[in-house]
């Protein structure tokens, strides 16, 4: 699908952080239902990604379950991550992590790389994305390996 350059540019600008003085988020381009390019320009590390998915602070398995035999407590609020790499392309996984709200405004999945449009964020987390660009790339790399 071809998109006009101005349309793509508008989307890039929309992705820029609105708050001045905030941590700068890496700009990205949304095309169709995904973000094709790595946020860091580098491929992520799937092993680090797996550790991140299992870390409570990343919040993934609070809601999702997956092929993680060592994780005793996994959530059932959201679909299992098993097979995520078969169901979605890396570009689709990346947009889902970065800003799932863009795909479904009613979703309960947080936007992991977005700092605008939020209400009463606690001071420890203000103006920070939930995950860094590097962490998102690591998780995308790991999820892409979950094939069925």
């Amino acid at each position: 699908m071809m998109r006009s350059a101005s349309r793509v540019l508008a989307m890039v600008i929309a992705a820029l952080p609105a708050t001045t003085g905030a941590q700068q988020l890496t700009p990205y381009t949304v095309e169709a239902d995904g973000i094709a390019a790595s946020l860091t320009g580098q491929p992520g590390d799937a092993a680090r990604g797996r550790a991140l998915v299992l870390a409570r602070s990343s919040t993934c398995i609070l809601c999702h379950s997956g092929p993680f035999p060592e994780a005793r407590f996994q959530g059932d609020l959201a679909p299992s991550l098993a097979g995520a790499g078969s169901r979605s392309t890396p570009a689709q996984l990346r947009l889902r992590l970065v800003d799932a709200r863009r795909l479904n405004p009613g979703t309960i999945m947080p936007s992991y790389y977005r700092i605008d449009g939020l209400t009463r964020v606690g001071s420890a987390w203000r103006d920070k994305p939930i995950l860094s660009a590097e962490q998102i790339e690591d998780i995308v790399a790991y999820l892409a390996t979950l094939r069925e």
Binding site: L62, Q74, G75, L77, I108, T119, R126
Partner: peptide, 22 residues
Amino acid sequence: QGQLNLACSNCHDDNWDKHLAG
């Protein structure tokens, strides 16, 4: 509200029969 952008209702009206990390 918050960095995770969740309303009370997202869990306690809409998903009360589910589990958060067990």
